[in-house]
Design a protein around this nucleic acid. Sequence first.
DNA 1: CGCTGTCAAGACGAA
DNA 2: TTCGTCTTGACAGCG
Length: 324
Amino acid sequence: MQTLFRLGYVAMSVHVKNCSPSQTMTYSTFQKIPDKDSAMIRLEQIAKSNITNSLRLLKHNRAHDIYFFRLSSRLIPLATHEDLRDWNYISGVKRELEELGSYAKKHEMRIDFHPDHFVVLNTPKKDVFKQAVQTLIYHHRLLRGMKVDPVHRCVIHLGGKYGSKEESLERFVDNWGKIPNAIQKMIMLENDDKTFHIDDVLYVCEKLNIPMVFDIHHHLANQRTKNWGNQWNRIIKTWSGSPRPVKIHISSPKSNKQFRHHADYIDIGQFLNFIQQINGTVKQVDCMIEAKKKDDALFRLTEELRTNNMIKWNNKASFYLESV
DNA sequence: CGCTGTCAAGACGAA
DNA sequence: TTCGTCTTGACAGCG
């Protein structure tokens, strides 16, 4: 079996200027605006700009054969703020969302989300859990607004340790039962760099039938000495019931001292070593490049890969790896 | 215009 | 129990 490797990147471009998809308004600024109607209009303007800028980014991606992209989770500022609970934050940006979604569908692009680490489903605090669910519902509404199938489009982590890792793992399982089925179907789980390593995430993913996103950098930060090769077959099995291809996260450590931080670019040696190990195990692997230099890191990686004669290009940003 | 401080969020360890 | 730190990109305000 030949494996198609497809490259993608995160949320924003360093090449396309004046194209932020994450412009925002803080709550303290919002409160300082005396006229609430004009404050709401301003919020909607920012949201429209963020969404149309995301569409511009998809067009930029298409020009470079990039069909895999993580949208910013900050498209609509203050959407999940509890003092704005009554605000129908979707209705004002319906047209923009539909346009974004239809462009992605038309060009068969994989788009997804990865909310900040504040979405913690295994928290023992009721209000934190409630807020996490609200944020997930927000992502679900965005996807429905785009008229994109929400299944397996939102990556989150297992959450905090709270003293006992075992209990916190089980609390995730318990809390999972408390969230709506439609939200469950949207979620994928990723190993983190401090607490929950591959085995923990696999345990939960297999138990609850959730696809697992493997993050090689997190694995090295968390379990530097342990080989992940044995678990890879289990990881790809978690995707067997998914309409989407296997997805992984790739980033390189900034330095030994700041190991957990993302470097500007991707280390080509590490990348090649990684894809060689998984080549031939599955039909397609989508590789999310998580580097400070965003799309420029993707471009540099493809430039470096071009000098390698084992790479057979499918297009400018996807390829096969010839086995030796 | 560019720099510094602040904003959001939740976890977590120190005091 | 409270506070500072971590993390991130962007805003706000200062000189």
